[in-house]
Write a protein that binds this DNA or RNA. Structure first.
Lengths: 256, 256
DNA sequence: GCGTAGACTGTGGTCAGACCACAGGTATTG
DNA sequence: CAATACCTGTGGTCTGACCACAGTCTACGC
């Protein structure tokens, strides 16, 4: 049996994935203790730990020291962190071009806006049924962004939260996680590009206005308009701030 | 300095990420040996290994035993594997609903088709300049799919490659990686759903035809038509095969 | 009987050291 | 000069040990 052709930690990872797929492990469940896993898989504890580390970074488990029901490794399945780590590191390692990240964000976010607007349109104004997207979080964030004392970093953080809240309102967790990852991967670039703006106060006013317009188009149930406004919003900002794409277009991440 | 509030492996990870961002480390570079990293960071080798394991799964480095220039940990930045692992595990752990994965795939792929068609339209037929997307790989895959002796699994594998080749032709590595991840995350569901089809031969004929139509629309430079055909293609297949969404709509991945 | 303070237990987090397999480089030898 | 054997450095793994931490349990004092 060529069972040990894989590295030891990989067998552990596969085993856990299989248990997940087969339903033996579900969100909320505790993983066996590291020492027990090591024994039952016939590997060393360090190999188990490497597998668990991967699961933790990918957002699948949460580990806690101590004893009791809240300790140990617990399945959580929170994809946000893992996606962010993946995107950040890939951008840092030039596996992803910043321009591609922005373009992808554009596509996803326009789709989200369009979808939300469609959902709003299909609901009667008085009907707050299950299909009506909840835009209250987005509205609160917009209000928070109107506070005059915000620093640039605080404003940008709220900005990110606003865009993310739209994705969350759409209910698509995959898109939400992806957008969170995309955003965090270029966060440092966005921050660094603020000085490139001709006038921050002027820009922030424009951004606020565009945000309101986007939300209005969504609430009005105008998919095409909402998507177009989102595109213009994002494109406009990156155009103006001239995000330095770093190594522009890397020929290709080395293939071999 | 609350430097050791983070876990040891995390400091290693951050350190490498910082080196990546600052340009100290570039794709193709060798990481220092594990023992050296451990010494310079003041942590144990096992902690270094946990960090490297994460980087490896995320597709950032490749490790090899032995000695010489090809050994050790090398920065590679191939996002495909990492994205696939992340998606697969999140779907397995019910962090992502299959329906959301499919919907996201729809959005990305429609966008890719539209973009490719636009690029084709802006080029003169005789102009094979740098902006002309290369669809030859996709064409070859379509020809390969016409072979009659293909098993269902082989056909589906080529199908996946075809869709992926479109993303690659668009040149957007972020989208390409995402589509690879999305696809692999639901691969087992797709395979399992083949028996749900009324007639596999009939379906495969239809899929082939739709593929040709999509490619034709792209080559003809018709963005709207290409995107619509992609949507119909994907939607139609999932409709027909009735992919079991597993736990359908998980209330929410446990938040706390 | 009851409450509280201490010890106990089990968990992850980390480290140190050892050994192995492997592959390239180098020195030795024919 | 060439082929071979050795050497070195690398990741891969295991073992054992210790720590910090947080519940749980127990024994003590009231």
């Amino acid at each position: 049996m060529p069972a040990d052709t894989r590295r030891a930690w990989e067998t552990v990872l596969r085993s856990i994935e299989a248990d997940l797929l087969s339903g033996v492990l579900k969100p909320g469940d505790h993983l066996p203790p590291e020492r027990a896993l090591a024994a039952e898989q016939g590997v060393g504890r360090s190999s188990v730990r490497e597998a668990l580390r991967v699961l933790e970074v990918l957002g699948l488990i949460r580990t806690a020291t101590g004893s009791g029901p809240s300790s140990g490794a617990i399945i959580v399945a929170l994809p946000g962190g893992g996606m962010s780590a993946l995107m950040r590191l890939q951008v840092a390692a030039q596996g992803f071009a910043v321009a591609d990240v922005v373009k992808t964000r554009l596509v996803l976010e326009a789709s989200v806006a369009s979808e939300l607007a469609t959902a709003c349109a299909s609901d009667h104004p008085t009907d707050s049924g299950p299909t009506a997207p909840d835009l209250s979080v987005a509205r609160q964030l917009l209000d928070a962004m109107d506070r005059p004392a915000l620093t640039e970093a605080e404003f940008l953080a709220l900005d990110a939260q606003f865009h993310l809240s739209l994705a969350e309102a759409s209910g698509n967790q995959v898109v939400t996680a992806m957008m969170a990852g995309l955003r965090s991967s270029i966060e440092s670039y966005v921050q660094a590009a603020v000085p490139n703006l001709q006038s921050w106060p002027q820009t922030s006013v424009r951004l606020r206005s565009e945000h309101r317009d986007i939300l209005a188009a969504i609430a009005a149930g105008e998919p095409t308009d909402a998507a177009a406004r989102v595109r213009a919003h994002i494109d406009g900002y990156y155009e103006e701030s001239r995000i330095t794409p770093g190594p522009a277009a890397p020929e290709r991440a080395l293939s071999a």
